[in-house]
Design a protein around this nucleic acid. Sequence first.
DNA 1: TTGACATATCGGGAATTATCGATATAATAA
DNA 2: TTATTATATCGATAATTCCCGATATGTCAA
Lengths: 103, 103
Amino acid sequence: MKSLEPIEVFKALSNEARLQILEWLKDPKAYFGPQEGVDLIDVGVCVSQITAKLNMTQSTTSQYLSVLQRAGLIHATRIGKWTYYKRDEEAIQAIATYIRKDL
Amino acid sequence: MKSLEPIEVFKALSNEARLQILEWLKDPKAYFGPQEGVDLIDVGVCVSQITAKLNMTQSTTSQYLSVLQRAGLIHATRIGKWTYYKRDEEAIQAIATYIRKDL
DNA sequence: TTGACATATCGGGAATTATCGATATAATAA
DNA sequence: TTATTATATCGATAATTCCCGATATGTCAA
């Protein structure tokens, strides 16, 4: 189990767009169209699809995904030229537990 | 029950000193000396005591307490010239629940 | 190879946050 | 009333974050 610095997690969550991304990734089928030969649920959603929904540039989207990843809330899988991002449900539960028990 | 904007809560928690204050307030008897005629547990801890432990000015402490209060994580009770701050345990559990179920 | 596409990173200006000192306000004590 | 103490607020500067455009890197197809 990775470290999960609570403060980094809270910083990552302190931004509307990043919160939005996390919510979309909770139910990818509801928010994103299907992707050539990959299972949205299993593998995740690629940067272009997220950029398309977010009202921001590809650059910003990519950076926000990095922030969420460094916080441990999502992880990336590269397949060909795409990078698919997926929530780390365990980490998300872990931060809830941190608040409930330790904060 | 108050609103509790998750993003405001996360912003409030995105600072080491404010996180520290919340942790101290979790167990006031462990971190603060007794106060003239008030029950630390019931009423809370006054700004001076918190300022004394935090390594920052009274001004900063007061502002951080405001931020935590506006986020709904603590609440204040004024008695005489002192303002006592106390955690809102319900709100803290509520944000844990938000993360666990809705994020 | 070269070209095209997906993503990542760099450099920067604008907006927000961190934190202070000075001062205003509120309450009590003398 | 005046002085004193506790807290809140104001104004300012430094640091950080937001978000962009430009460009670099990685991968596949021709």
